[in-house]
Simulated scan of single mutants.
Amino acid sequence: MAPPALYRVPEACALLRLSRSVIYEQIRTGRLRTVRQGTARRAPASAITEYVALLEREAGEQK
């Protein structure tokens, strides 16, 4: 079975091991891209990958 193309916020929380409030803060600041599906927010799999890459870049800059 293929991984999901869109993740619900609770799934993104579990995948990234971040709290719900942190996920929503990252969405609000534009660091984690989401799309709307009706009234729900979904994070595309590509947005999760981009977010992890952003964190890696930021960690590299701090060295």
Rank of each mutant, 00 (worst) to 15 (best):
A45M: 13
L54M: 07
L55F: 08
Q26G: 01
A43V: 15
T34G: 08
S21H: 15
M1H: 02
L32I: 08
L54R: 01
E56C: 15
Q37Y: 10
S21V: 14
Y51I: 10
R42V: 04
R57Y: 14
C13T: 01
E56P: 11
R20H: 13
P10C: 10
V22S: 11
L15W: 10
L15G: 01
I23V: 11
R28Y: 08
A45K: 14
I27A: 00
G30F: 04
I23C: 03
T39G: 14
A12Q: 04
E50I: 10
R28T: 07
L6V: 04
A45C: 09
A14D: 14
E11C: 01
A53M: 11
K63H: 12
R33H: 07
L54V: 07
V9A: 04
Q62V: 15
P3D: 10
Q26D: 05
V9Y: 01
P3Y: 05
A14V: 03
Y7K: 00
R31P: 01
V22Y: 12
A12I: 02
G60A: 15
A59D: 10
R36F: 14
A2K: 10
L54N: 00
Q37C: 13
G30N: 09
L32Y: 03
L18E: 02
Q62Y: 06
A47W: 03
S21W: 15
Y51S: 06
T34N: 07
A45F: 08
R33N: 03
Y24S: 09
R57V: 11
T29D: 11
E11A: 02
K63M: 11
I23S: 00
I23A: 01
L18T: 07
I27D: 00
E58H: 14
L54A: 06
R8I: 06
G60R: 14
A2H: 08
E56H: 15
C13V: 05
L6E: 06
R28M: 14
I27S: 00
M1G: 04
I23K: 00
E61H: 13
E58Q: 15
A5F: 07
P44Q: 08
V22R: 14
R17M: 04
L16I: 08
R41M: 12
G30V: 05
S19L: 09
P4L: 06
S19Y: 05
G30A: 11
A12E: 03
E61V: 14
L32R: 00
E50P: 03
A2D: 13
E61R: 13
R17S: 12
E58L: 14
Q37R: 13
T34S: 13
E61I: 13
S46T: 07
G38T: 08
G30Y: 06
S21E: 15
C13R: 05
G38S: 07
A12G: 05
P4D: 10
L54S: 05
G38Y: 02
A14S: 09
Y7W: 06
R31M: 07
S46A: 15
P3V: 01
